[in-house]
Simulated assay, not measured.
Amino acid sequence: MSPHHSVPEVGTVFSPLATDRLELGEGVRLLSDGRIVLVDILTGRLLALPTARDTPLILLAQLDEPLGAVAPLDTGKGFLAAAGTGFTRLTEYGAPSRRTSLADLVGSPPRRMNDAVCDARGRMWAGSMAYDAAPGAGALHRLDRDGTTVTVLKDLTVPNGPAFSPDGTTMYLADSALGTVDSYRVDPSTGTLSDRRRTFSLSPGSGSPDGMTVDDQGRLWSAVWGAGEIRCYSPDGRLLLTVGVPARQPTSVCLTGTQLIVTTARYGMDRPGPLDGAVLAASCAVTAPPTAAAAR
């Protein structure tokens, strides 16, 4: 078994990292300065983990529109966000009212931006979806370094991810509504996608792939909404590990080198459990790069 296909080790005990319970926690990211940030999508909040577990999350920004995900700006001040119906620049940490809208991409039926991430060249890739998750109403968009926006994939439903391989030549993208994760070859210089392949798919009733990340060995980690699981796959789609999470709707994952951090959601639950909506962590020595910065 090659190193890229080795089975990682993850602790079996998850505990909350803050006192909050989020409606739709998502987009957990490790920054280059060691901080961990995440979003509560439908409330438009950008949050950071506190230094002490029994304290609330730290509010960094509050938008009056859904906030799908963020990437730090390469200037070191502020974030680029997939928010509302396009891309928004948050110009300073902790200054939510000072923002500049860059592009409005989506229209009728009512849609919003969902998960997003930057590649190593500083381009942001972001999914959009209908509020009612109408089939085929989703898309994947790319904001290039020069500010140009391109819709690169259409006819999706609930795009999640994307996530990039360590060398930047493979992109993984989930369509949560279909239970699928596909890989694409990426031209790093242009961002052009090609050679679409099915990495893995989940059968109906076994959960939906949600937020993803790729570790330093190229293994793909996916939150599985509805199944209370995190799954780890080899680059060719072989299931290496399934980890149970004490929340039914895990939404995104982050690897820090000491912990596996998982966001979860209470959205749509009549009777959420005590850890539904919590930000959870278990011990894990697997490493991954900090989230890539946006070139702005």
Rank of each mutant, 00 (worst) to 15 (best):
V158T: 10
P159Q: 06
P159N: 05
P159L: 05
P159C: 03
N160C: 09
G161N: 03
G161K: 07
P162Q: 03
A163M: 06
F164P: 04
S165M: 10
D167E: 10
G168C: 05
G168D: 02
T169V: 09
Y172P: 01
A174T: 06
D175F: 12
D175R: 03
S176P: 10
A177I: 15
A177M: 11
L178G: 13
L178I: 12
G179Q: 06
T180P: 03
D182N: 09
S183Q: 09
S183H: 11
Y184R: 00
R185L: 15
V186M: 05
V186N: 10
V186W: 03
D187M: 14
P188M: 01
T192Q: 14
L193V: 06
S194I: 05
D195V: 13
D195P: 05
R196Y: 08
R197V: 10
T199S: 05
S201N: 13
L202T: 15
G205K: 08
G205I: 13
G205F: 08
G207K: 04
G207C: 12
G207Q: 14
P209R: 03
P209S: 08
D210I: 00
D210A: 07
M212N: 10
M212P: 13
T213Q: 11
D215Y: 00
D215C: 04
Q217D: 15
G218M: 01
G218F: 01
G218H: 02
R219H: 09
L220A: 00
L220M: 01
A223V: 07
A223P: 11
V224S: 04
V224E: 02
V224I: 15
W225F: 10
E229T: 09
E229P: 12
E229H: 08
E229F: 07
I230G: 02
I230E: 08
R231S: 04
C232M: 02
Y233V: 04
S234M: 00
P235H: 06
D236V: 06
G237T: 05
G237H: 01
